[in-house]
Amino acid sequence: MAVIEVENVTKVYKIGAQETHALRGVTVSFEKGEFTALVGPSGSGKTTLLQIIGCLDKPTSGVVRIQGQDVTRLNANGRAELRKKLIGFVFQFFALIPGLTAYENVEMPLLLNGEKPAARRERVKYLLEAVGLGDRMNHRPDQLSGGEQQRVAVARALAARPLVVLADEPTANLDTANGQQIMEIMQRLNRETGVTFLFATHDPRVVAHARRVVQLRDGKLVEENGAVLAADRREAAPAH
């Protein structure tokens, strides 16, 4: 069953009189437990699509359903509630809260979800150990390497037991070894928890980890697992 359904989604940014079409009618769905790479060059619309699926932004038109619920109809509070309960984020720039320790950063979604202290402790420890940071819990972001910070971010994304983790270029700011390690951790956690992972990247080494690859170009879905999509073929075919 599809946990995320994207139907004919467009996104137009207006800057003054100029319109930029970030997404041009994207339709795609993702099943529970998928480990999918969203690929495409810069400006192809990967980040915009992730933000719309993650309820951080609203589409100009089209429908996004998460577990069958049309999230485009939700107001800001409804979207925030949905993010809190169902979605975990991993960002390119790590996005940890400075000044809070690794433990406190991972604990934050649990605090927002009103989890009890004992449950929070257990969950945070489990996740930080799962990403190999059991001995770095009390370190602040500025005391952690980039790879360690991103591992904390992965642990935080999974803290509230989300339905889906959306990762935007999770390895872009990491060296090869750390990037590899992050992908392996995400892969393992995907297997162990059954959480759907959807990550945007243009790094072929990262794409190699994905079980499914969806390609975007100029705001449109053009290829899936190497197969050029019908709409794209029509566009690519010479005029008769």
Partner: peptide, 16 residues
């Protein structure tokens, strides 16, 4: 500002 964005991404509502 960015921290507010992170908290919002984690599901913190405007009134919170």
């Amino acid at each position: 500002t960015r921290e507010m964005g992170i908290l919002a991404a984690l599901g913190m509502k405007a009134h919170q």
